[in-house]
Design a binder for these strands. Structure first.
Length: 1205
RNA sequence: GGGCGGGUAGCUCAGUUGGCUAGAGCAUUCGCUUUACACGCGAGAGGUCCCGGGUUCGAGUCCCGGCCCGCCUACCA
């Protein structure tokens, strides 16, 4: 073993060994057969938008620690890996990339036939690239995922789950379509969920606009004849203050707004009914300047009354009159609903003023047309200009407020009226299921409390528990979830919209067919009625539009027929979180029945010859063989060729009826008649094979790309759901955790069709662990645009994967977010340095885009530079990152390496004795041996406790202290003189080392595996009560047993005994150091019998640790100095040729000063009358004893001082 | 506005039912090529535990108030 641990020399081969051993592949069969308890974790699927940064490294390291520990503890473990398609994020990135490459981007593709498909292809390629990169990063970090089961949220298995889930929710009335105000991103032109909107403080302005008052016009449709209302008229009506205004002039109301341009869509002015002016205004109207539109004055409690002196900023700025724009403001929309106001949408989807989207009337008039085609910003200026010109702009005041921005395009959100799909998450079947799931002790409100003896209820627990509050509060204020997105990249909504045929044969045929299909659950139909509109009674007289949700989009018969009736598929896709919410179900094969019988049937010819079996639900024969040249057509062609023509016959395949998986279908008529076909393929090989017709292919990977899954996939749900824990960051609690709980419980529940009788199913996971966020060195969130994110691979390169992991684990305390100051590594000379920073326009502090190496002076680019679209070159390469934060962990790994190297040197050179006694009682062991075993027992307990309560930092700290402070500093040093001649000591050494490697393996898998490999041949005497079970698969430590050491080895007596040795050694070392005794000089100890006994019984430990030439009862003859130990006066002699009295005086003075302080404090404590009375007697006794000891020590030192003169 | 978290050594952070002298890593001082490790070994120095009250025999820890910092959430009248 080399004297330094170089991670790069080991990590690759260790990964290969794990891979070869199949160490991480989960076998649901063992769980179902009750051979092992399950322990499962679902990876929070990273977005394929970008490579992973340190935050992901933290997230995944913690999961790996948990899963590796449980694997060693004997659980059947599954860590399900995968990635997320991240709809809007990926679409934006891909679009940007297309633009940068000069290829047609979305705006171009929208205009051409097949543009959508073309874009999806580009996105798919992008996804493939990043999926590979992300997977590589995870593997480099040592993540022990079940890589054979890796999923993607848009792969066929997941897509099937999405369609099924949508269908069931739709059928059960939990999905509806409605015209609502949504958060509209005018740049990407899609609706966003509330949580995709970021609030940003902006310096805005309040504009005060005057709206003239008029009498209701005679002819409502022609407002030109509206009569003005004068101030004197208003005064006569009792309007307070009107008499002070010029009586003949036209009276007006002043509204305050931050968005003057929306006045174009105003359909009312609202006033609080308690406002003293309200009564006088009853029956009057307001006429919008330029447009001439006459709108009502409505009374609504929502309106805040003006209060210029008040503390409420709203009241302070308010005029008491609120302009109401139902189509462009969510609150106004609600007011509009209450007062049945018209909704006038004045904007196009790109937020420009438009006469094409609901605003026709005045848009073409003289006053209105000047606005058409203007952007929001231009329109605002124009409105202000026109109002100012007419003397209708009363005032402008600066106002600071937050405005929603798209988390992707960063454009200001436009509240926009549009048709969207919603999930009724506020329904008790969904929200209730999530709230009832919460552990009762973490609840603070009384709604939806868990019911006794109800599966899943009360089982969901948050760690740390404060996060339960966020979860609960979110559900209390929940609104229905907008799930449609006007994007291309995502799961397309499986709904066809159209009008049913009216009258005649076709109508009858429709009724007949559709009713049959509904009975078969192949389609569900709803009239497109917005519940809100329905309430208002607006649904009557509307065209009879219907939404048909088709359960299986490959159900060609149904699809073709609906399209023949003129139904068209909804172009929108689903919110990414819809598929994320199904992650616990879709990755485990839901919906689908276990397909275990397939194995027996396929394997009948040569039992045991199949390495793996993959299955796919293919629907009908027609959909399976597909059209000429289609993807599925290629599939069947190759399957046939590989089975029937290839000499190696690498596979067998059969078709089954999904309803009966015991007998394969052989007759063509049976196959063609079956609507629920399952294709099962048995592979005789694994990895890449050479075929006659298709060159070298990895059959398993190829089949997976066609939607085939491992035959055991459908057993996963039974075996591993609920999973054990979900590890994530707090920003996801609401977005994701809640929705997984709702969906898992709903879809695995029973009686879903009927709200009253629905029974919640089980949870997707029982524990939710929320970990810290990693920020950059100045506390800013890591982001791609700031270039302050760190690629974990940079750290793997500079410090090694284990150091990366150990550091992250040690940082994970219960409270703190983590700041990670980052250095650059010069790509020219390899030296690290602290980068120069700059302030971005937005005020962020980042590394300057270009840097010069302080050592070699050459130039380089930073990630921020690249994000500002600078291109790296050979003169200016991209610099990698590193951070001194990881040094501690790297040093720790090196320490472990060297301690092991030392131990192996000893263990390898001396053979185990012939006498391999099976049981070695403790009495035969030396003090340090018994002590290290006692410490080992304590350390194991601490690690287990920490792991069980997700206190990761404590786990790492326990290992650090045990390995470095106990094992290296004391145990190894103590046994050095004796270990070569003691087989027992060597046995303890070996077992302790091995147990340490096992304990540390979950945190530092590479180095422990590497050292374990060297341990293979070493033998030693067995020690009673130490249980180290061998590796289960491929001889790798990752599958070896967690160390079990009998608690009998823990001994407080032994600990105390060894502590005496340690404090004597420390006391003597202190004197040696202060008197500057050369390290090699041997000194002599003069001590009373009790201390001599301690030394004699533990020899040669103390002598060797402090460099004693000898010890004796005798008084020293030459010069000597005193040492205090356990109240005894010891003396050290032969420190030097002459003791320096000045040094000694300084030392004693310091000791005396310290002791005086301590004695004072103790006296004060005991002098307090309450202390003796109220404090526990044992504690008081202890304090008295301590005071005595200190006093005597103090006296002794003073005496020494006097003797010195 | 509401909620949550944090303020402990020069820096980054531990400190789980209140209880012996408040800990670690880095940095720093002194000494050391001690035959596993200088990514090391030995010995030090360094703290009004943000401020002010309170409860208690006893408060870094519990309660109240205040001041800073961060995050989440609400609000575009």
């Amino acid at each position: 073993m080399p004297p330094k641990y170089q991670p790069a020399d080991h990590e690759a081969q260790i990964r290969a060994r794990w891979d070869k051993a199949g160490a991480f592949h989960a076998d649901p069969g063992r769980v179902l057969a009750a051979e092992a308890a399950p322990y499962a974790i679902l990876i929070p699927p990273p977005n394929v938008t970008a490579a992973l940064h340190l935050g992901h490294a933290l997230n995944n390291t913690l999961q790996d620690v948990l899963i590796r520990a449980r694997r060693m503890m004997g659980y059947e473990t599954l860590w399900m890996p995968g990635t997320d398609h991240a709809g809007i994020a990926t679409q934006t990135v891909v679009d940007k990339r297309l633009k940068a490459e000069g290829k047609p981007s979305i705006s171009d593709l929208r205009r051409i036939e097949g543009g959508r498909e073309q874009f999806i292809e580009a996105a798919q390629a992008f996804k493939d690239e990043y999926e590979v990169r992300i997977t590589h990063q995870l593997k480099m970090m040592g993540c022990s995922c079940d890589w054979d089961r890796q999923r993607f949220t848009m792969d066929e298995l997941c897509a099937r789950a999405v369609r099924e889930a949508f269908f069931r929710l739709f059928r059960d009335g939990l999905i509806y379509r409605g015209k609502r105000i949504v958060n509209w991103d005018p740049v990407t032109q899609t609706a966003l969920a509330d949580d995709e909107v970021e609030m940003e403080e902006v310096e805005g302005k309040f504009y005060y606009l005057r709206y003239p008052l008029v009498h209701p016009p005679q002819n409502a449709s022609d407002p030109k004849d509206a009569q003005e209302v004068s101030w004197s008229e208003l005064a006569a009506r009792g309007y307070p203050g009107a008499e002070l205004l010029p009586g003949e002039e036209n009276a007006y109301l002043t509204v305050a707004t931050t968005r003057p341009e929306t006045y174009l869509g105003d359909t009312a002015v609202a006033v609080n009914p308690r406002d003293p002016r309200a009564a006088a205004l009853r029956g009057l109207r307001v006429q919008l300047p330029l447009l001439g539109r006459v709108i009502a004055i409505v009374e609504d409690d929502y309106v805040v009354m003006a209060d210029p002196e008040g503390d409420d900023p709203k009241a302070k700025y308010a005029t008491g009159f609120l302009k109401v724009t139902p189509a462009h403001d969510p609150n106004d929309y609600e007011i509009g609903r209450r007062h049945e106001l018209e909704q006038i949408n004045v904007m196009a989807p790109d937020a420009s003023i438009s006469d094409q989207h609901g605003w026709e009337r005045e848009a073409r008039s003289e006053g209105g047309k000047i606005f058409v085609g203007k952007s929001r910003e231009e329109a605002r200026e124009l409105v202000l200009k026109e109002f100012r010109a007419r003397g209708l702009l009363e005032a402008v005041k600066p106002y600071r407020h937050s405005v929603g921005h798209s988390y992707r395009s960063h454009a200001a959100i436009e509240p926009y009226l549009s048709d969207q799909w919603y999930v009724a998450v506020t329904d008790g079947r969904l929200r209730g299921a999530a709230l009832r799931a919460m552990a009762p002790e973490q609840r603070t409100t009384e709604s939806f409390l868990p019911r006794p003896h109800h599966e899943g209820d009360g089982e969901l627990k948050f760690y740390p528990d404060r996060y339960a509050k966020a979860f609960e509060a979110w559900h209390e204020g929940l609104r229905d979830w907008c799930i449609s997105r006007q994007l291309w990249w995502g799961h397309r909504i499986p709904v066809w919209i159209g009008a049913r045929p009216v009258g005649g044969d076709e109508s009858a045929r429709f009724d007949r067919l559709v009713s049959a299909w509904r009975n078969e659950d192949r389609v569900a139909l709803h009239r497109l009625v917005d519940p809100a509109a329905h309430q208002r009674g607006e649904s009557d007289g509307q065209p009879q539009l219907e939404a048909a949700c088709i359960r299986d989009e490959t159900d060609a018969e149904v699809v073709a027929q609906f399209e023949a009736w003129g139904y068209a598929r909804d172009p929108d896709v689903l919110d990414t979180w819809f598929s994320s919410a199904l992650w616990p179900l879709s990755t485990m094969g839901w919906p689908g029945a276990p397909s275990a019988p397939v194995a027996a049937t396929l394997d009948v010819q040569e039992p045991g010859s199949l390495r793996s079996i993959l299955v796919k639900h293919v629907g009908t024969w027609k959909s399976f063989i597909g059209d000429e040249g289609a993807r599925s057509g290629e599939l069947i062609e190759r399957l046939l060729a590989l089975r029937d023509k290839d000499p190696a016959e690498p596979l067998v395949y059969e078709l089954f009826d999904g309803a009966d998986m015991h007998m394969p279908l052989r007759a063509l008529a049976d196959i063609q008649g079956c609507g629920n076909l399952v294709c099962a393929v048995g592979l005789r090989t694994s990895g890449v094979v050479r075929t006659r017709n298709y060159g070298e292919i990895d059959l398993a990977a190829w089949l997976r790309s066609h939607g085939f899954v491992d035959a055991s996939t459908h057993q996963l749900l039974e075996a591993f759901n609920p999973t054990s824990v979900l590890c994530t960051a707090r920003e996801i609690i609401t977005l994701w955790v809640s929705r997984m709980v709702m969906f898992n419980r709903y879809f695995l529940g029973e009686g879903s069709g009927d709200a009253a009788r629905h029974i919640d199913g089980r949870l997707p996971f029982r524990d939710v662990f929320i970990h810290a966020m990693i920020q950059d060195g100045t506390g800013q969130k890591m982001s791609k645009s700031l270039g302050n994110g760190v690629d974990p691979l940079d750290i793997v390169e500079s410090h090694g994967a284990d150091a990366l992991r150990f550091c992250l684990v040690k940082l994970t305390t219960q409270t703190q977010d983590v700041r990670m100051p980052v250095d650059l590594i010069c790509p020219h000379c390899g030296r690290p340095f602290e980068p120069k920073t700059i302030k971005t326009p937005a005020g962020h502090v980042v590394a300057a885009p270009e840097q010069a190496c302080p050592a070699c002076g050459k130039a380089m680019l930073t990630a921020y530079g690249v994000s500002q679209s600078q291109k790296p070159s050979s003169e200016r390469p991209l610099a990698k990152n590193t951070s001194g934060k990881f040094d501690e962990a790297r040093n720790f790994c090196n320490k472990l390496w060297n301690a092991s190297r030392f131990a192996l040197g000893i263990l390898g050179s001396a053979p185990a004795t012939g006498a391999m006694s099976a049981r070695t009682p403790g009495e035969m062991l030396s003090l340090p041996d018994r002590w290290i075993l006692s410490r080992l027992v304590q350390t194991i307990a601490e690690c287990e406790r920490a792991l069980g309560s997700y206190q990761f930092s404590n786990y790492a700290t326990a290992m650090y202290d045990f390995l470095w402070r106990d094992f290296c500093d004391w145990y190894l040093e103590a046994i050095k003189p004796t270990v070569a001649d003691s087989p027992l000591q060597r046995a303890v050494l070996l077992h302790t080392l091995e147990a340490t490697l096992r304990l540390l393996h979950p945190i530092a898998p590479f180095i422990t595996e590497s050292i374990w490999d060297h341990l293979g041949t070493v033998e030693a005497v067995a020690i009673e009560g130490i249980d180290l079970t061998p590796a289960k698969r491929g001889g790798v430590l990752a599958t070896a047993g967690w160390p079990r050491v009998a608690t009998e080895w823990r001994s407080e007596q032994v600990d105390a005994h060894f502590e005496r040795v340690r404090s004597l050694v420390t006391a003597i070392r202190e004197v040696r150091s202060q008197h500057k005794v050369p390290p090699k000089r041997r000194i002599r100890l003069h001590a009373p019998e009790e201390v001599i006994q301690l030394i004699v019984t533990t020899e040669p430990i103390i002598s060797s640790l402090v460099g004693l030439a000898g010890f004796t009862h005798d008084e020293p003859r030459g010069p000597s100095v005193p040492v205090r130990f356990e109240g005894f006066d010891l003396r050290l002699s032969e420190l030097a040729d002459a003791v320096d009295p000045a040094t000694e005086q300084t030392r004693l003075a310091k000791a005396i000063a310290d002791l005086v302080k301590e004695v004072d404090a103790l006296e004060k404590r005991l002098g307090n009358p309450g202390y003796a009375e109220r404090a526990p007697a044992q504690l008081v006794q202890q304090t008295r004893g301590l005071l005595e000891a200190k006093r005597s020590e103090l006296a002794a030192f003073r005496e020494q001082m006097e003797r010195l003169g």
